[in-house]
Design a protein around this nucleic acid. Structure first.
Lengths: 218, 218
DNA sequence: TCGATAACCATATGGTCGTATGGTTTCGGG
DNA sequence: CCCGAAACCATACGACCATATGGTTATCGA
């Protein structure tokens, strides 16, 4: 076999370049030529590693959402290890999705750009639906498990509660993007905390016999 | 003076054509040629009525947001005329922004498309900021007035309450777009009703001497 | 009725984009 | 040591777009 290169590394380098461009100036700025220049390669090489521009963009989008999900999961695992309440774990995990620093602001911009495209592009829509569904599902499962733990009343509808928490988190993200300073960030955290308190009204009893992993992670 | 035409009508016809195209297939589909064809005019005529494509798109966006605002205001006025509680008026007004029928789904698509562009285009961002600010401000004023009326505790922070209600409304809109059927729409309405109930905890006493117009409309 | 002028149109122009094409370079294996 | 295939590159191609240009048409005021 001839000359070799790390296939996955190259694709990651190219996708990262695309991510930077989209975060900085939107999807329209991510032309094949611009991505190649940003990544330090030729247009031909980008073509070599991706069948089409759509292929490249979809890969970039997936990469972004996977990274976000990964971070949230890691925070959840840390919260569990520290024996924190489910409400506290959720507050920290959902807040991680807020555009409060440059990295997450970039992710927010990329996410919104693709969200708009998802309205017209079925492939992008599938990725958006999957990630949103996964997060909403995780929240719902968390609420459900909170019943066993004792933090959540048994007659709570987990799916509805998850819908509310997820929607509030996303809606607040939009506002925080335009005004990420302390006062609003604190107000947003307070609102999410209140919403969580309205769902997780009881105290956690970790030794409940029906206890299971609170978020299905780990 | 020569041949005449209704200037505002032409601009409206063209903007409506652009609106239809954007609602159906996104901003990229709204090329000058496509808009002209959709409106039944020549490209030259569209150029005659708008200085540039950006000008046309901005006009289209403004038109859409103004129409939404107008409908909400009308609903508020009707609610006041019917002597409904502030919470009930807000529930109806905010719910009007949800993409539950084809018209509002189209508006949602146009709104999201421009929202994405607002991240990179200052002119579009200004329109987005103004309309969002206006609505958030109206909600905050409503909450404030609720204190005079007796529905809201005096120590409530109106701005924070408005932030929460506005964010929840928008977050739920995103979810409702993907699943506008009855079950989720009912759940969303229930969640918004609960959030409103958490702010408007008292009963309204319309004859309070400090009473003022609840939403500053009419 | 007759210009003047706005309304309206067809097409040219210059630029940009995604992709196709035809390379050259590099290196693993026989 | 050298063939062949993958890695990598420069550029051509065709499509599309926003805008510019140079009209034609219709109607209002005089």
């Amino acid at each position: 076999m001839p000359r070799t290169a790390d296939h996955d590394l190259r694709r990651a380098q190219i996708a990262d370049a695309a991510h930077r461009l989209i975060a900085h100036a939107g999807l329209d700025a991510a032309t094949m030529a611009a991505v190649a220049r940003e990544a330090g390669f030729s247009v031909g090489l980008v073509q070599h590693y991706f069948d089409s521009k759509d292929d490249l963009l979809l890969f970039t989008y997936r990469r972004t959402t996977e990274r976000q999900l990964e971070r949230v999961m890691r925070l959840v695992a840390e919260g569990e290890a520290a024996q924190r309440t489910i409400a506290a774990i959720l507050l920290r995990g959902l807040g991680e999705l807020w555009p409060l620093d440059e990295r997450r602001r970039g992710e927010y911009r990329v996410g919104r750009a693709f969200h708009a495209r998802s309205l017209d592009n079925p492939d992008v829509a599938a990725v958006a639906r999957d990630t949103a569904g996964e997060l909403r599902g995780q929240i719902a499962r968390t609420v459900s498990n909170g019943k066993h733990c004792g933090e959540v009343p048994l007659d709570t509808d987990a799916a509805t509660a998850a819908l509310g928490l997820w929607s509030l988190t996303n809606g607040l993200a939009d506002q925080l993007y335009h005004e990420p300073e302390e006062p609003l960030a604190d107000a947003a955290a307070g609102l999410l905390r209140e919403a969580l308190a309205a769902v997780f009204t009881g105290e956690c009893h970790r030794h409940d016999p029906d206890w299971t992993d609170p978020v299905g992670a780990g």
